[in-house]
Design a protein around this nucleic acid. Structure first.
Lengths: 207, 207
DNA sequence: TGTCTACTTGACCAAGCGGTCAAAACCGGA
DNA sequence: TCCGGTTTTGACCGCTTGGTCAAGTAGACA
């Protein structure tokens, strides 16, 4: 068996190397997109040679696929944590906080998915139409129930979710633009954004 | 003079060809990003040969630059049209409508800029820090004046503008995801989005 | 009609790219 | 110490890509 990645019991070396590769790949893919990234860049960032990288992953696509797969669950976790039994305003404020926190702490992950979706999501189309859609539908039902009980304003819950995604991820995906407009890169922008967005969504949703 | 693009009085042919090239470039660059686009794709879409394309534009970068430049004014027009002397809620609702309309009618332009900014805005960094920032500052001052007069809630106007950008452009830039989640591509999604976003921003800003 | 210029093209080039391969180096266990 | 498998690498390949160039074709205008 020559292809390390397909082993059942990876050795310590294999785990360390694949980890290094995926870490480097996150850097490179998020910064340049799939097409713009090169195996040489990833290999160098990971501290090994290109053939060596290809010993662990069969192809560039394979690295990309593995990376997206590994990040997906973490990426959707904030939405998953919305509690249908919680207080609507508290839950939505907390969701906004979690998302703006991810934009601050995991901008590379955000840009990785932004690049992928912008290019038409060629590698995760099935995820969008499957698990993602199911999760959104589930949470949308909860929001609709809140609306039916008169606990939030009667808005389209799916567009509400889109807005929260868009407004929060904006601070990661379009960071250069945000910094250019604000002038400088004072990290306080994330707190300002959090305050504004909490206000925006809480106020708009009060019944 | 061999380089057509640098002529002062472009002939009919020159105008038609450069127009065709920029139109094709908008298609290709918006779909694949700068790095992902190829001159052959653009040339074929424009209906001419690659060397012929390079007769009109000196390089791939030059095509991209000209394209961005030509689109920039139109792209910022909706923001420019916010009237400091108008009624706050009316103005903001109208701005949201204009922006969601652009996402519906000019998704390629939106994705062109999204790609550029996502890659770190290497070709328009000066525009962001210059004209864009100036325009935002100008409109932010108007919004701040409204807030001082108690006509809208006292929010950070720049983050308000970011939110409107993000929430509206989302429907162009992440269209695949939106369609996957909503299921199908019913154009009614733009009307739903417009209704939701008008509600969102109008309600949140009422003093 | 001829002539000058604008336009167009096929053939070509060098660099960069993803990927292959055979051989070498490494390493744990007997 | 030798042995078998794992890991690493330099050299290489074929393809794509941005860009060049010399030679040709087509228009404008006298």
């Amino acid at each position: 068996m020559s292809r390390a990645a397909s082993r059942r019991n990876p050795t310590r070396i294999q785990r360390a190397k694949t980890e290094a590769i995926l870490g480097a790949a996150l850097d490179v893919f998020s910064a340049h997109g799939f097409r713009g990234a090169t195996l040489d860049q990833i290999a160098e960032a990971a501290g090994l040679s290109k053939p060596n990288l290809l010993y662990y992953f069969a192809s560039k696509e394979e690295v990309h696929r593995a990376l997206l797969e590994r990040q997906l669950d973490d990426w959707l976790e904030p939405l998953r944590r919305i509690d249908p039994n919680g207080d609507p305003e508290t839950e939505i404020r907390a969701y906004v906080r979690r998302k703006i926190g991810m934009a601050r702490d995991f901008p590379r992950e955000s840009r990785l998915f932004a690049n992928e979706v912008l290019q038409g999501a060629p590698h995760i189309a099935d995820v969008l139409a499957g698990p993602l859609r199911a999760l959104v539908d589930e949470k949308a039902a909860a929001l609709r129930a809140w609306a039916a009980e008169g606990r939030i304003a009667p808005v389209d819950p799916r567009h509400l979710i889109f807005s929260i995604w868009a407004a929060t991820q904006h601070y990661a995906d379009f960071d250069v633009q945000v910094r250019a407009v604000l002038g400088g890169d004072d990290p306080a922008r994330f707190d300002e954004a959090r305050a504004f967005l909490e206000h925006l969504f809480a106020n708009a949703l009060r019944p």
